[in-house]
Simulated assay, not measured.
Amino acid sequence: MYKKNKLFLFLLLFLSFFTNAQVTPPLSSDYKIIEIGTNGGDSTKNLILIHEIFNGGLISMNNAVGTLTAFRGTAGSYNRTNMIEINSSSAYNGTFATLRTYDGNGEWILKTCIYNGKKYLAVDVPYADSHHDWGYQFTGWTKSTGENMKSVNYEVNGQAVNTDKLSDIQNYIPNMNETHLVSNFLIMGNNVGIGTMNPDEKLTIKGKIHTQEVRVDMTGALVPDYVFENHYKLKTLPEVEEFIKENKHLPEIPSAKEIEKNGLMLAEMNMSLLKKMEEMT
């Protein structure tokens, strides 16, 4: 019996040690789990005020580093799953913020606004007619000299609301860098957009590209060296002249209107220009 009791006490101390070892007290009272609530109902657009930010007067530390989640879903209501990782702070005379979103039906966008006379960093909740009936919750380190993680409606059934205390809603341009120092960065998805929310190809970029080299695989494309074959029939100069007078562009080259409408296919255009050069040669 003594040995059994001794073994029992040993196991109890062992389990107690490892159970307690997994519990880490918060390093700061600013680490919080905040139940934000819902926006109140369907057909409602709302902002979540993150924290106060600099607006001309020096400000104490305000910050939010953590995860904001929003859910909808029951046996009688369709599923909505949204989550953002936010990293933001405002102190003295500067504000830094960025966010990463995971969503099933829309994008969360950083905003600024004036609420009850103070300026705030906020996120615009992706809108759908049916609201997040499980509400919003923030988990992380946050503090604010004003409101902190508060949902504020700005439109209900197409009508503006809270205009007496909410105003000047503006887009906020994220100003923090995210760096990945890895051997390979793999994205196993459908389309990737840079500078656009609506990529229509594997990679869609709204803006300029600066690079040292571009290599295009000519899969399925026919390099036009066949124009040097003896059986290839060149258009006569009068035929080319007649075509240009009538169409205002070279044969087999798209017109300016076509390029403006459909864009320019790089591989296809290079082969067409090469063909014209070889024909002239």
Rank of each mutant, 00 (worst) to 15 (best):
W134R: 13
H231I: 06
L166A: 09
G56F: 07
N63T: 11
M218C: 00
M269V: 03
T145Q: 15
T24G: 02
T98D: 10
T69A: 10
R100E: 03
Y226K: 07
L47A: 14
D103H: 03
L13Y: 07
F54Q: 01
N198I: 13
K119F: 10
S89W: 04
G220Q: 01
K6D: 04
T142Q: 06
E229F: 04
S28V: 04
V161G: 14
E268F: 00
I209F: 07
K111V: 09
L166S: 11
S60Y: 06
V23H: 06
S151F: 12
A64K: 03
S29A: 12
I53K: 04
K45M: 07
L273Y: 05
N62I: 03
F71L: 14
I253D: 04
R72F: 01
Q22C: 11
P224A: 05
M197W: 05
N20E: 12
T95M: 01
E85M: 08
K111D: 08
T74D: 00
I50P: 07
P254R: 14
L273S: 01
F8T: 02
N5P: 01
Q137W: 04
L203R: 05
A75Q: 01
G263M: 01
K165Q: 13
M265E: 15
P174F: 01
N230G: 13
A128H: 09
A75R: 01
T101R: 04
N46D: 15
H180I: 02
L121F: 13
L110F: 02
G76Q: 00
K165F: 09
V216M: 10
E279T: 07
I50G: 08
R100K: 04
I169R: 08
T219M: 06
K118V: 13
N157W: 11
N171Q: 09
I53N: 05
I244C: 00
Y226C: 02
L110W: 02
I59D: 07
T145D: 15
R80N: 05
S130M: 09
F138A: 06
N55D: 15
F243A: 01
S28F: 08
N116F: 07
G66R: 12
V214Y: 02
E85T: 10
M188H: 06
S88T: 12
T204R: 11
W134Q: 14
N79H: 02
S130V: 14
V23T: 06
M218T: 03
G189V: 06
I169P: 11
T142Y: 09
K257E: 15
H132P: 08
V65H: 12
M269Y: 14
G207W: 11
G57H: 07
L15V: 15
S255L: 04
E201W: 04
V161A: 12
F228M: 13
N262W: 10
K245S: 01
N184A: 07
I48Y: 12
N87D: 09
A64E: 05
I59H: 09
V216N: 07
I109V: 14
N87P: 00
K45G: 04
A122Y: 12
V223N: 03
N157R: 10
V216I: 15
N270C: 06
